[in-house]
Design a protein around this nucleic acid. Structure first.
Length: 267
DNA sequence: CGCATTTGACCATG
DNA sequence: CATGGTCAAATGCG
């Protein structure tokens, strides 16, 4: 979906639309980062306060998303349908196509390699429940992801990476895509987007069903911590509060997985 | 050696 | 037919 976003979109009469949009985006990022910073601290100390904090953060973020969405709608009307690059958008659902050849979870992949016979591995990710956001730290969402693909999307500078939940063996079908956005293209609104850290647009698909720690008949996969080296990290373990920040990213990735629940983000 | 990532190919969808 | 999502062998790292 190459939204040929024209940087020369016709502005609404006030002219502050994109600027407001950028502000909303920035606000969203700040809230997310603040949340990532605060919640782990509260979690080990005061559970009740932590729960309230989770609610509050989610409410704030939800409000932000709602406003941004409406603002985006206004901007789109004014810009004659040119697709913008909003901070948060709901991916529309064209058709939700479930893969038709669901393999029998154990014995399919070993029997052949790269045969065109084995088909049906496709699933269009136009789920109504997808959530997207823009962040500097695309891997701090409290889940373990495993990368399974990368594609160059036409017209995009940076490739798109495809991740699925590392606990897929628990029938967790959550996936996400991470795509680096081009740094501030227009230099339109100065001084705000002038971070040297790249922005990533993260889109989540599906829900995590691996959240309950009650290991149900399936042992967790052997997750090696080596993905902590590259930026591809996401904390899940319960003692995640103690994670040292030996990566160059800010130590925002310390999330207890109970703190992240994107389920109610649909509007 | 076992694991996750990389990367090219396959294939569904529009 | 072009594009994007997924698979899986190859690769590399700890």
């Amino acid at each position: 979906m190459d939204c040929k976003r024209s940087s020369s979109l016709t502005l609404p009469p006030c002219g502050h639309g994109p600027e407001m949009m950028a502000t909303m985006r920035r606000q969203q990022e700040l809230v997310m980062q603040l949340r990532a910073l605060v919640l782990p601290l509260l979690h080990g100390v005061d559970e009740a306060s932590a729960d309230i904090a989770v609610q509050l953060f989610d409410d704030v973020i939800g409000c932000n998303i709602s406003v941004a969405s409406k603002l985006e709608g206004c901007l789109l009307m004014w810009s004659t349908g040119a697709g913008g690059g909003p901070a948060v958008e709901l991916v529309d659902d064209k058709s939700l196509v479930v893969r038709m050849n669901t393999s029998t979870s154990t014995g399919d992949r070993t029997e052949e390699q790269a045969k065109p016979n084995r088909v049906g591995q496709k699933r269009r990710r136009n789920d109504k429940r997808s959530r997207s956001l823009v962040t500097h730290v695309p891997h701090y969402d409290g889940h373990q992801w495993r990368k399974y693909g990368q594609k160059n999307i036409n017209g995009r500078q940076h490739p798109r990476s495809y991740y699925r939940c590392a606990y897929r063996e628990r029938n967790c079908l959550a996936t996400k895509t991470v795509e680096q956005q081009k740094l501030n293209e227009g230099t339109s609104s100065s001084a705000m987007a002038s971070e040297e850290i790249a922005e990533y647009s993260v889109v989540y698909y599906g829900d995590h069903t691996c959240k309950d720690h009650s290991i149900s008949t399936v042992e967790p996969p052997q997750l090696v911590n080596r993905d902590l080296q590259n930026v591809e990290m996401a904390q899940i373990t319960t003692d995640a509060q103690e994670a040292e920040a030996d990566f160059d990213l800010p130590a925002l990735e310390v999330f207890d997985d109970s703190l992240v629940d994107w389920d109610d983000w649909n509007m």
